[in-house]
Amino acid sequence: MNWQSLAYLSFGTALVVLFLWIIVHFYRPKRKGHVEEPKYKMLDDDQDQL
């Protein structure tokens, strides 16, 4: 295996690992409450100068 295919392979693997880590990290059940918080907060009536 030459360095080019090695670099290709490790780059691809790194991407897949990173991708899986992002999914696992954000989908861990105990984080759910925190991760999902902004979507409720944005619905609060933000202070309008009406």
Partner: peptide, 24 residues
């Protein structure tokens, strides 16, 4: 992502799905 929840008063289905969709 801003105006759909605002005009329906419904929270977006999944914040974490949008995290993954955004970066990819």
């Amino acid at each position: 992502y801003y105006f759909l929840p605002k005009s329906t008063n419904l929270p977006i289905y999944s914040h974490r799905l949008s995290i993954i969709a955004f970066w990819s």
